[in-house]
């Protein structure tokens, strides 16, 4: 770093300065307390309440302690397991789609395609739309009779492939995943682009001088150097998908035949749609799911990121 290199004389001796990675408690308090206060007041308490509720059955204003009954019932709840399966499929597969599309788009912009400034905005517009609007638009796109997807298929002579995309249990989940990827690819692109821009230019130029093709450059230089960013994006997308709700709720409501039921839609159904004020059971689902996602994130971090943290 140039800044330190320019000033070695200022350092009297390394030992005389206090360890710069330590600081006094008041400073930490100033930095951390606002965040922790918000966390404790508005996140931890409701979360704790949820876990507490999961040991009760609640009828109106009366709560009855039932111990682990909700958890036991959950283990044999068929719908819950279907929801878990769907959510896992979505969470593990879809982020790959999101992140790789985002990376390719960012590379295209970085490589200097014409109209890059326009394209950067054009590709980002889906991110700006709310789930409600995205859901309505894509329900039209997937419409059997006049949706653009089927219209195009019919126009190119593939009319036999025209389907009721959201109405077929074999296709509905895939259709939702595509819609979700459509919305989020642009966000991944922006983050990747920022990361590419902050790569040391010399490395990329050196690769250019070596007459390194784009493929090789991508594999040997760009992807390894972007690893922390890509990983962050993957985990972020993963968590987003583990909680996925709005899009599914509006487009399919978990149907047909529970083919698109996710854990969050099931929690919501149990909490708001099952003609009961019982928060116990949905709280149990939320608590279990909280554990599962935490564990998954920790494992993902271990498996994928073992060496990244140490490098800096």
């Amino acid at each position: 770093m140039t800044s330190t290199a320019a000033r070695p004389d200022d350092v009297k001796s390394p030992g005389s300065v206090a360890d710069p990675r330590r600081t006094s408690w008041p400073v930490l308090v100033v930095f951390l307390v606002p965040a922790l206060a918000i966390y404790v007041g508005l996140t931890a308490y409701p979360a704790f309440r949820t876990i507490y509720d999961s040991f009760f059955t609640i009828e109106g204003l009366d709560a009855t302690f039932v111990g682990l009954d909700n958890y036991r019932a959950l283990m044999s709840d068929e719908t819950f397991w279907v929801a878990v399966r769907n959510t896992f499929v979505w969470s593990f597969i879809a982020p790959v789609l999101d992140v790789s599309t985002g990376l390719l788009l960012a590379l295209a912009l970085y490589a200097g395609v014409p109209f890059a400034r326009f394209l950067r905005v054009a590709w980002f517009t889906p991110v700006l739309l709310s789930y409600v609007v995205v859901a309505i638009l894509w329900m039209w796109i997937y419409n059997y009779d006049w949706g653009i997807l089927n219209e195009v298929l019919r126009a190119v002579g593939l009319g036999a492939l025209a389907s009721s995309w959201l109405g077929d249990p074999n296709l509905a989940l895939g259709a939702l995943i595509v819609t979700h990827a459509w919305k989020w690819a642009g966000f991944n692109m922006v983050v990747c682009l920022a990361a590419i821009h902050s790569l040391p230019r010399e490395v990329l130029e050196a690769a250019d001088l070596d007459n390194c093709g784009w493929g090789a450059k991508l594999r040997h230089v760009i992807v390894p150097m972007l690893r922390p960013t890509l990983l962050n994006l993957y985990i972020l997308a993963f968590i987003g998908k583990m909680k996925i709700f709005d899009l599914v709720w509006i487009m399919t409501g978990g149907g047909p035949l529970w083919a698109t039921e996710t854990v969050s839609t099931y929690v919501y159904k149990r909490a708001f749609n099952w003609n009961t004020f019982d928060l116990g059971y949905p709280s149990a689902i939320a608590a279990v799911w909280f554990g599962v996602v935490c564990a998954a994130v920790v494992i993902l971090n271990r498996v994928l990121a073992s060496k990244d943290r140490l490098e800096y």
Binding site: R21, L28, Y39, A44, I239, Y268, A271, P282, F290
Partner: peptide, 27 residues
Amino acid sequence: YRFKGNRLIYAVLFSSIIFPPQITLIS
């Protein structure tokens, strides 16, 4: 900064990202 409980605070703050909002809504 290095201080005791750093990673714990990080984990605690981060983990709250996972809770489904539909369920904490009522509390």
